[in-house]
Design a protein around this nucleic acid. Structure first.
Length: 423
DNA sequence: GGCTTTAAACAAA
DNA sequence: TTTGTTTAAAGCC
């Protein structure tokens, strides 16, 4: 806060910060919109995250509440409170510090999941325990190597790195968090399969965005926190999939099998329908372009005609070329779930709208290809984008500089050549 | 009345 | 000392 918000810049000392810190703590604790993620490595500190379900109901229901409606799913189980007041909730936690005890029981939350998953979910390992990242002492369950690159930024500036300096941290963080919580949906596995199964000349053009060159070695990829990607991802975030949060929060733990099978990739943004939408936003236009340029004479299926929408709606949604190494890594990780043999290092086409020309299994066509759903997603995305910008108020300046690197990309004008699908 | 903010007390680490 | 929870009060809409 002190670093990022001008108002607080001169209020960082212990005296002047007591008040507003207290207020922040108060609000964090009070409102179900925030959830605490225990940081087991630091003892008492925790990470606070946005509740994937939004906590729209406002204040977290008090534990003492005799009756709880649906919002009880969001009820924050407070460890300390349980010490003070004997548990009233139906699912008492054995340990007050158990992370699981601090998560609201939204559908699909660890509390509502199977035990096998709960272990992973409940275990937020310090990043220092990660095989891939031992650099940073920061223990955010969702941080990425960008932290490592900017260790001096010890704020919860999750992505407020130099690369995202133009993005107001508050917005960035929120978007990032939201996005991180978004991700999974049942269709993501299908998408990933298709994505991983994609091959051929498409890769160069269809680059999966957002992977920094050194991300391949990271247990926890940065794609979610790529400042460029954030805005795009956030644009399709809708607090829909806590299980992805789980994956996000277990950077060093091998995801449960089902998660693994459904995740696009541990180092890739994982989304379900949203993902597909975003993917289309990012890649659709150019994927189609790629196919077209590659001599595919076939007319695009109806689904594909939606691709340009994303490109048009988000002209900034230019894909970022991933490094070959990353691509290889991604591909290899995806391979097990792919029905098609995937050559290591082969392209990863993330556009779900492109499998047909490649002869992929049509049975795997996901609901993502449903044009209605797609349009719906787009509509929501725009709403979210607008909302985000408005909420930010001033100075929201998305920086997409890093994403304009390669000449191999189709230009926005190319993307705009595609049919605009009226909403 | 609901919400936000602030202050304060208290407990735990 | 820091962090988190809870209560209370004041002010605003």
């Amino acid at each position: 806060m002190v670093r990022s918000v001008p108002y607080f810049k001169d209020k960082g000392d212990s005296n002047s910060s007591a008040g507003w810190k207290n207020s922040i703590r108060h609000n964090l604790s009070l409102h179900s919109k925030f959830i605490k993620v225990h940081n087991e490595a630091t003892g008492k500190s925790s990470w606070w995250m946005l509740n994937p379900e939004g906590g729209k109901s406002g204040k977290a229901p008090r534990r003492r509440a005799a009756s709880m409606d649906n919002s009880s799913k969001l009820a924050k189980v407070r460890g300390k409170a349980s010490r003070k007041k004997p548990p009233l909730q139906s699912a008492p936690e054995s340990s007050a510090d158990s992370p699981g005890s601090q998560f609201p029981k939204w559908p699909g939350s660890p509390s509502s999941r199977s035990n096998e998953d709960s272990d992973v979910w409940n275990t937020f390992r310090p990043r220092t325990s990660s095989n891939a990242s031992t650099i940073s002492a920061r223990l955010s369950p969702i941080l990425t190597e960008q932290d490592d690159l900017h260790d001096e930024e010890l704020l919860p500036s999750l992505v407020y790195s130099s690369a995202s300096s133009n993005v107001p941290p508050t917005v960035t963080e929120e978007l990032e968090l939201i996005d991180g919580l978004n991700l999974m949906s049942p269709s993501s596995s299908v998408l990933s399969t298709q994505q991983s199964a994609s091959s051929g000349q498409i890769q160069r053009d269809s680059s999966f965005s957002l992977q920094s060159p050194n991300a391949a070695g990271q247990t926890f990829g940065n794609s979610l926190f790529n400042p460029v990607d954030i805005s795009l991802q956030s644009s399709v975030s809708h607090f829909s999939a806590p299980q992805t949060l789980e994956a996000l929060l277990t950077p060093s733990s091998p995801p449960p099998r089902d998660v693994m099978m459904t995740q696009v990739d541990p180092v890739l943004p994982q989304t379900g329908n949203r993902m597909s939408s975003r993917t289309l936003l990012l890649l659709g236009g150019q994927a189609a372009q790629s196919k077209m340029s590659s001599g595919n004479p076939r007319g695009k299926p109806a689904e594909q005609q939606a691709e340009p929408v994303g490109a048009s709606v988000l002209p900034s949604a230019l894909p970022i070329v991933t490094s070959p190494q990353n691509t290889a890594s991604i591909t290899s990780l995806k391979a097990p779930v792919s029905a098609q043999p995937v050559q290591l290092g082969s392209p990863v086409l993330l556009s779900s709208a492109s499998p047909a020309p490649l002869g992929l299994n049509q049975d795997r066509l996901p609901t993502d290809l449903d044009i209605d759903m797609y349009m719906e997603n787009l509509e929501c995305d725009m709403d979210y984008i607008i909302n985000s910008e408005l909420m930010d108020g001033e100075g929201l300046d998305f920086n997409f500089e890093p994403i304009l690197p390669t000449p191999s990309y189709p230009s926005t004008s190319q993307a705009s050549n595609h049919t605009w699908v009226p909403s």
